[in-house]
């Protein structure tokens, strides 16, 4: 019953989901998670769920990674400040 492209999408999602967890540097992780979000969106299309896929694109591969990047930027900046103070 399962289609070939669904298998491919599932395997990719599993692999990139694992990568998201294993990449411990937040900045690199934000990039990986954006990629992961897009893959998930693709999987949702493969599952005949275009509404969910659209949400996933705007939230999972744009909205959330943007928030992550902003948070990381703020943290980096404070780290730099602290280094300068020392």
């Amino acid at each position: 019953m399962i289609e070939a492209f669904q298998i491919v999408a599932l395997v990719l999602v599993a692999a990139s989901g694992t990568a998201v967890v294993l990449v411990r540097d937040p900045l690199r992780q934000a990039v990986v998670v954006s990629f992961y979000g897009s893959l998930l969106a693709g999987l949702f299309f493969a599952f005949q769920a275009p509404d969910v896929a659209l949400s996933q694109i705007v939230i999972g591969s744009v909205g959330v990674p943007l928030m992550l990047l902003m948070a990381i930027a703020k943290v980096r900046k404070r780290e730099l400040e602290r280094e300068r103070d020392e």
Binding site: M67, A71, A73, K74
Partner: peptide
Amino acid sequence: FLDQTILL
């Protein structure tokens, strides 16, 4: 979040 990062 930008408010927080604006200075960067």
